[in-house]
Amino acid sequence: MDEGKNDLINGARMRMQKIKLTINGKLYELILGYEVQPWHTLAFTLREKLGLTGTKIGCDRGECGACTVLMDGRPILSCLTLTVECDGKNIETIEGLLNSKTGKLHPIQEAFIESGAFQCGFCTPGMIMSAKALLQRNPNPTLEEIREAMSGNLCRCTGYIPIFNAIMKAAEKMRGMT
């Protein structure tokens, strides 16, 4: 594990390499070998290095979906993603959902509250990110499409049905806004 031992290989590695991430519209530059290590996952970097603890680490094995964030608009598992491989990527996390001007909740967040779509709340940030990606690409989803889109986010409290209701309601709210 000697640092720099392999620097010569085709210039694949350079000292002071920076990982540039756009997170919720803000650019972060993290120095490799200092703020980010090759083995750090995106979930770890977001939470422990950048303080964006809204993204949760559940199983830490890509099974439960609690760590879901959007990368270039698609839901991905931040616990299975290496930060070094995110250079130049656009990341959205739960922290980016509040309206930055008004501080108001996103319609999906409102709908989750109104529908009782969470209990313990641990899966909720990941759920909401999956729901956001769905409604972005499909503003008028059927129940089937909602179930499919949420099938990578486990919840042990709610039995999912209040979550489906919330997403239906959120879709309605968002359609009303445009």
């Binding site: 594990m1 031992k5 392999n6 290989i9 085709n10 590695r13 090759p38 083995w39 996952t41 070094v84």
Partner: peptide, 21 residues
């Protein structure tokens, strides 16, 4: 997860070379 070196391969050949190495 334990430590490892990480390389971003630019070409297939580079990846093969690294694997060989």
């Amino acid at each position: 997860m334990k430590r490892f070196e990480h390389f971003n391969a630019k070409t297939i050949d580079e990846a093969i070379l690294l694997l060989e190495k």
